[in-house]
């Protein structure tokens, strides 16, 4: 659906997008993740045909963006970051205008409008003036607008920014629903959101793609080791020796005063160290009151890939 090769966007004095290449297959939901200023919006604006690239090739549905911009734009539903709308128009009026502009024939207009309003949950605000709507409704009008011509590809730039938690859940479930019919590329700087909605994640930092995989695989790839925490009552030196001798454990630290101490273990990910810890404690008749293993979240991966010192190393 999207093929991007060596995409570069240069502004005087800085590079916003630096040699980015990726593919999005039909039917995929792909999330762009990155800190603010990583080049997510710029890349999306280029894909939507708003900004031209300085270099590189972008093909959408087998049309070259540079030479067949109008053809590409016909196939894309794009929602910019701030979800700009004409505040003085009514919802129906706006959707009808946009549908006509995007070439929806007059005969299908009514059905299309009813369909997108139904799917986006704005059927009851059709005659309201957009400027008077709440942010959540406006966001949904923006989404409805981007769907109105049944595009093959949806590009949504930060679709849930500025919404309250309830509205975020609504928009998320809406996106998940849309994924059945459209290919979706969305951006976000909220990790849990991308983790929840996207099947594949592209992590951008400083205009480059630093990682591209499913959230699960990224997690696995990132952390070869897991962290196990246990609170044990027993003689400190003996406990530490016992823990260190467990298979796969590379490092044990402890903290706390008194009989209960908190031990932190670095352990290999394959196999579950927790059972071994319990076995060791039980064998010595020590007492155990807490035991858990932390797996790396997408957040850890994100931080490690995009914090400036390590990102360079990984390149």
């Amino acid at each position: 659906m999207i093929e991007v090769a060596h995409l570069t966007k240069r502004y005087p004095g800085r590079v916003a997008v630096d040699d980015v290449s990726f593919r999005v297959n039909p039917g995929e939901i792909v999330g762009f993740l990155g800190p603010n200023g990583a080049g997510k919006s710029t890349t999306m604006r280029i894909l939507a045909g708003y900004l031209p690239a300085t270099g590189g090739i972008v093909r959408v549905a087998n049309h070259d963006l540079a030479t067949e911009s109008i053809e590409v734009r016909r196939r894309i539903g794009y929602m910019p970051e701030s979800c700009p709308l004409y505040g003085e128009m009514r919802v129906d009026e706006y959707l009808r205008f946009r549908a006509r502009l995007k070439g929806v024939p007059r005969s299908k207009l009514k059905a299309r409008l009813a369909d997108v309003k139904e799917r986006c949950g704005i059927a009851d605000v059709g005659s309201r003036i957009i400027g008077h709507l709440s942010k959540g409704y406006r966001q949904r009008v923006g989404l409805a607008e981007s769907l109105v011509h049944e595009p093959e590809l949806l590009i949504l730039d930060e679709p849930t920014i500025g919404l309250d938690p309830n509205q975020i859940r609504l928009v998320r479930s809406l996106i998940a629903d849309l994924a059945q019919r459209h290919t979706i590329l969305l951006s976000s700087h909220i990790l849990s959101e991308v983790e929840m909605t996207c099947r594949r994640v592209l992590i951008l930092n400083k205009g480059r793609i630093v990682a591209s995989d499913t959230p699960d695989k990224l997690r696995r790839r990132m952390e070869g080791e897991a962290t196990v925490t246990a609170e044990i009552e027993g003689p400190q030196a003996e406990v530490e020796v016992a823990l260190r001798s467990l298979p796969g454990v590379s490092e044990v630290t402890s903290e706390g005063i008194g009989p209960w101490r908190r031990y932190t273990l670095r352990a290999a990910r394959d196999g579950d160290t927790r059972a071994d810890v319990f076995g060791a404690v039980a064998a010595q008749k020590w007492r155990l009151r807490e035991l858990h293993q932390e797996s790396a979240t997408l957040e850890d991966i994100f931080v490690s890939l995009t914090s400036s010192d390590r990102a360079e190393v990984r390149q």
């Binding site: 939507a48 045909g49 708003y50 794009y78 700009p84 004409y86 505040g87 502009l101 995007k102």
Partner: peptide, 14 residues
């Protein structure tokens, strides 16, 4: 100012 230029120019119009 309002940013609608972005939706306008990404519609299939010259």
């Amino acid at each position: 100012k309002s940013g609608t230029i972005e939706t306008l120019m990404t519609a299939p119009v010259s």
